[in-house]
Amino acid sequence: MTDEQLVLCAVQGDLNAFTDLVQRYERTLVNVVHAHVRNAKDAEDVIQETLIRVWKGIPQLREPQKFKSWLLQIAKNRCLDHFRKAAHLDQPVEDAHLAHLVNRHGQQFAIRHSRWDEIIAALAAVPTAERSAVQSFYLEGLTIKEIAARGDLPEGTVKRRLYAARHHLRESLERPHENKSGRKCDD
C-alpha cells in the first residue's frame, strides 16, 4: 500500500495501517531524533512524543502522500521542544549509574555511544550547507533529487556538498594509524 492509502486507513482508526506507516520510516525517524538529541533516554522520549503527536494529528494531514516529510517535521519540532524546556538541564551521570549501564548493556554499548558523540561533534563542525545535505541524505533518507528540489538547487550542487561533507567527516573521524611497533603516529 502507498503512504496515502495507509494514512487514509489510519484516519479511520486502523491501528495496523498506522503501525505499517511508522515501521516504514522508523529507522529514519530514529536517526533524525538521535542526530538532534544525544541522550538515548531523552531520544526515546522524543520519539514517543512524536508518535503520539502523529497519531493524534493524522486526521488533519492535508496531503497524505507527504506523510514522511510531515512525520520528520514533527520529530524535529519535538526535538526543539525538548531543548526549550526550562527544566531541561544536562545532569552529570554518577559513577554508580554509569557502571550499571556498562554492566547491563556491555562494553560495546559504551563504545558505540562514545563513537556516536564523536560523529555528532564532527558533523557539527561541517559547514552548514554541507551538513544539511548530509543530514537530509543519510538521516532523513532523501534522494539527491529530493534534496535538490527542497533547496531549489542543481543536483550537481547537492552531490558536491555531499562529497565535501564526507571528506570533512573522514578527516575529522580518522584515527591515528599505528605502526608495526604498536605506537601511534599522526601520519
Rank of each mutant, 00 (worst) to 15 (best):
P154C: 05
R160F: 15
Q108I: 11
R78V: 10
R161T: 08
Q135M: 07
A99R: 11
L71N: 01
G106T: 08
E140K: 13
R104V: 01
L71D: 04
A122Q: 06
A148W: 05
H97E: 12
R112E: 14
T143H: 03
T143D: 03
T143W: 03
I147W: 02
I119N: 04
H105R: 11
D95P: 02
R166V: 07
A122P: 00
L162T: 10
V134M: 08
L101T: 02
W70R: 00
Q135V: 07
I147R: 03
C79I: 02
A148N: 07
L72F: 07
G141E: 08
A122R: 06
G106P: 07
Q108M: 11
K76M: 09
C79S: 03
R160L: 14
L101N: 07
L72A: 04
D81Y: 03
S172H: 10
A129F: 05
S114Y: 14
L98I: 00
H82Y: 04
R161N: 15
A122V: 01
R150I: 06
A86C: 09
A125T: 10
C79K: 00
K76I: 08
I111E: 15
D90I: 00
A110H: 07
L169R: 05
S132W: 04
R115N: 13
L153Q: 13
H100L: 10
Y138L: 12
H82A: 02
A165H: 05
G156V: 10
S132M: 08
G106S: 03
A110E: 07
Q91P: 01
G106Y: 12
F137Y: 15
Y138D: 04
I111Q: 14
E140A: 06
A86Y: 00
E94F: 12
I147K: 05
I144Y: 04
Q91F: 04
Y138V: 04
R84H: 14
V134H: 00
T128G: 05
L98R: 10
H168A: 14
C79M: 01
A125G: 07
A165V: 03
E171N: 15
A122W: 03
G156M: 05
L98D: 10
Q108F: 13
A99Q: 14
E155S: 09
H167T: 14
A129H: 07
E118M: 08
A125P: 00
H113K: 14
R160Q: 15
R150K: 15
A165D: 06
L153E: 12
H113P: 03
K85Q: 12
Y138F: 09
L123K: 09
E140W: 01
E155G: 04
S114A: 15
P127Q: 08
H168V: 08
A129P: 02
F67V: 07
H100T: 14
Q108V: 11
S172W: 00
A148M: 03
K145N: 15
L72R: 01
K68R: 09
K76P: 00
P154N: 15
L153P: 05
K76L: 09
L123G: 08
R170Q: 12
L98F: 12
A164R: 14
F137G: 00
I147Q: 02
H88A: 02
W116I: 04
G151T: 11
V93K: 05
E94I: 14
Q107D: 14
I119H: 07
S136L: 04
E146R: 04
T157F: 03
L139T: 06
L80P: 02
D95T: 14
G141D: 12
S172R: 13
H100I: 10
T157A: 11
H105G: 03
R150G: 09
R104G: 10
N77R: 05
